[in-house]
Nucleic acid binder design. Structure first.
Lengths: 112, 112
DNA sequence: TTTCTATCCATAGATAATCTATATATTGGC
DNA sequence: GCCAATATATAGATTATCTATGGATAGAAA
């Protein structure tokens, strides 16, 4: 019970946006990139990734176009839009504020 | 749309356990304590708090007993069990691992 | 005395995010 | 011809959180 999640809920969009800020990539490549950079701590399941990409496309933060991948398969390459880059900044700063706040709670001394 | 959440999903149990590691408290006091320590960044809504407390009781990480509060109202005071303290350690270390992993992704350079 | 505010508990229902499982298809190596 | 890796996508379940209520009491204020 209480299985360890593959990632921190609420951070996936930010991770995708950040990954794409490094350059256009297809979905499979995004998942691999996050896994590799996080040193295998974060895993993005397909069932999380593709719905998230739809969300981000719909929000106008990404655009997508079909191309051939490095391995010669058809793949949809996503690129960060200007709005997407702005959103990335917003998400990072909100995230950092949250983390700092949690840090303050965790740092509270345990003796009265 | 996409309203900023009151806290990072997945961190509430840890925050409650940590708060109780500082000493027994009733639900209302837990929420206040988290809000205050986080400097108003984190807000725990009742609709999140009480179900969470039920979860934690059921898991054996807390015990609860009815008493009179400082303000002379009946209130249920929660105390961390030994298992709860252990769980707190587990959750903190998993959380820190996640944060470190996210940090690595966010620190990745944006130029190829 | 009545009313208001803060304190305290709790649940129902909606929403959102993620995970599990599955389906499909193609390339290239063996 | 088969298999592993690459690649996209959806349905359904699960879980966590938020919104919105509802109820009750103490003490201050009016």
């Amino acid at each position: 019970m209480a299985k360890k999640p593959d990632l921190l809920p609420g951070t996936l969009d930010m991770l995708i946006l950040k990954t794409l800020a490094r350059g256009p990539l297809h979905g499979y490549g995004i998942a691999q990139s996050i896994k590799r950079l996080s040193e295998d701590v974060l895993t993005v399941e397909e069932g999380s990734l593709y719905p998230a990409l739809q969300r981000l496309l719909l929000a106008g933060w990404l655009k997508g176009e079909w191309k051939m991948s490095e391995t010669n398969r058809r793949a949809r390459f996503y690129t960060l839009t200007r709005a997407g880059r702005k959103q990335l900044g917003v998400e990072i700063s909100e995230f950092e504020q949250m983390i700092a706040a949690i840090g303050r709670v965790l740092a509270a001394p345990e003796e009265a």
